[in-house]
Write a protein that binds this DNA or RNA. Structure first.
Lengths: 359, 359
DNA sequence: CTGAAAGCGCTTACAG
DNA sequence: CTGAAAGCGCTTACAG
């Protein structure tokens, strides 16, 4: 690929024949310079290699390639897209990009799609159904080849509509209906959190469960409660509270739990930032996290280990989820049959459950 | 704008005449349904309104609009782009999208460009010059109308090359050369940090200054040192150390400062996450932040106020910077003369400098 | 092995 | 007020 300042003709100020309005070389530019027809240039440049038919004679092909390289030719994606009805574009919808979990997933998506020659649009929806519709419409208006939703509602109602439009898509982070998704094995993650707290002797537990429409919170909570149940430890309904996925959501939820009077000895929070908010409230209540109350978060964001009281958490492979979701979409675009993937989480014990026992 | 599931013909399974290969209505679809020529439809749909010439008779215009609405027509951007050589696309380069500062700025850019009917591509460069070239090339291959760089090196060398390519661009967050930029008034921000620490009586100061190629770190440090100088307080060179902009960078830098032996009573860190890393090292050294050592960060990320020891910091208008940068680029695309903008920061005092004095 | 033609879905002067 | 034509930069069967 030609690169900025790599000494191709583009930067030398030479006027190219049959350049586009911006002065960029076109297929025609290369064709004239090579003394062949544009269709020959197109065939040569699009030929992927391999045995069998050749797009042109060896010498012609080499000459064309050399000239294309020299003038810094790159095909006009509007022309290609118009002709082939393939845009090599992917639309990605997330609740919020400032959420490091989603930003990390998106980085994985972006990197992986780039290796296929695809570019991505991202947009925030704030988990608002109206915004989801609006943003989906914007993205479809751009004629993306496919979409990746990181903001699926577990009921999948909106996704049914999108599927009805014929747009291939996959889900990431959250599952919904029977649509192909790449998620963390959230049920397992919840179980790991429970087993950790139970193994430390905690029997008085609470869960800050996230939004009721997100499979992440639902599955993590279900896994946690199932493991508690299997161990014969009950968690009252009043001790399982929904919350937003941010720090403030954790503050609110923990306050509600404390308002009950009794303080649980162990709290599972389905998101690290939510856990940080919860820890703040515990601290403000004069409780020492890791000694008076054990807290387990979810995701293992980079900050978790840098906190004054290191946060015990369930590490989810966020970047990997993005990469895999991108691959899954690419396979869908190639009309392959695809199956959902559940990536394995790992418990990372730190001071918020171990107290002074330094890890 | 037609919306998913809004009851237009698109979702009803009706075959549209002259639809594109994906079954979407084209200009021709609308033209046939309205019984007029495609050029008339184009004129009507692109007419912005206003007095003077009309694109068609009132009744024709209304009929066309009604039909376009009903079939859910949205113009094929590849065709429009090919014809007009305008893509309504913007490329955005950032060091890393998982950095909440950049993610917040990008959200501002995305929102603002969307109001102009533009879409954006973002890509990470990790502040790596080779990646900057590669990503710029990818973005230009998409035929964006303009670019926004959030990862400028202060010397501006690479940007000179980009300018030579004729692509309009603006900078955000970091300034460079004489290129139009939207930044925080970082010099002022540094001064605010210094005045705060000086007013609390601190005379033994240190600075964790960020990367040497980023104007943010450079200007914040310069403003800080200038204010110290004006107050007759010297800061030795050995107490001004460069660092990466993340938590680990703060750990390394603070460790280097402490390795000197003497512990400063006040530390200015040019980035909140770097400050969090620095606070971790201080804590590990048995020092209490806010009592033994005062720490001031920069940006006021949402977490700053939720930390166990609330972080005193200089709030920069991150989202607003993104919005303004987008507007600035739009004006450049309209060939207007534009000037750089410096947005005003505000000091937010918290426990990391005030200790027990609750704010 | 290579050329010529048609056409993707638009916009925009130009006629009438 | 409206139509007809040309053409943006490609790709792809089809000839030869």
């Amino acid at each position: 690929m030609a690169v900025v300042g790599d000494g191709t003709d583009r930067t030398s100020g030479v006027e190219l024949p049959f350049a586009d309005p911006a002065g960029r070389p076109t297929l025609r530019t290369v064709a004239e310079l090579a003394g062949v027809h544009v269709s020959t240039v197109s065939r040569v440049l699009n030929h992927v290699g391999g045995p069998g038919v050749r797009p042109a004679s060896r010498t012609t092909s080499e000459r064309i390639r050399r000239i294309a390289e020299r003038v810094g030719y790159s095909p006009n994606p509007h022309a290609t897209g118009l002709r082939t009805s393939r845009s090599h574009l992917v639309g990605v919808l997330v609740p919020r990009l400032v959420d490091i979990v989603l930003a990390t997933i998106y980085e994985g998506i972006e990197e992986a799609t780039a290796t296929y020659g695809f570019s991505t649009f991202v947009a925030n929806t704030g988990d608002d159904p109206a915004a989801q519709r609006r943003r989906t419409e914007m993205v479809l208006a751009r004629r993306v080849d496919g979409m990746i939703f990181g903001d699926a509602y577990v009921d999948g109602g909106f996704l049914d509509e999108v599927a009805g439009r014929g747009v291939p898509f996959v889900l990431v982070s959250r599952r919904a209906g029977a649509y192909p998704s790449v998620t963390c094995d959230d049920v397992l993650g919840g179980r790991l959190a429970a087993e950790h707290l139970l193994s430390l002797g905690h029997r008085d537990l609470a869960v800050i469960a996230g939004e009721p429409y997100a499979s992440t919170g639902i599955d993590r909570t279900a896994g946690f409660l199932a493991a508690c149940d299997a161990a014969g430890v009950g968690v009252p309904d009043s001790r399982v509270v929904h919350s937003r996925f941010d720090t403030e959501g954790g503050r609110e939820a923990m306050s509600r739990i404390l308002a009950d009077g009794a303080v649980p000895t162990g709290v599972f929070v389905v998101n690290d930032f939510t856990a940080i908010g919860a820890m703040g409230v515990l601290r403000d209540a004069g409780l020492v996290v890791g000694r008076d109350v054990a807290v387990v978060g979810f995701n293992d964001v980079p900050l978790a280990g840098s906190l004054p009281v290191g946060l015990t958490t369930v590490r989810s492979p966020m970047h990997e989820m993005g990469v895999r979701a991108a691959h899954l979409l690419m396979r869908r675009l190639a009309s392959e049959e695809v199956a959902s993937e559940r990536l394995v989480p790992v418990l990372v014990p730190r001071a918020s459950t171990l107290g002074d026992r330094r890890v």
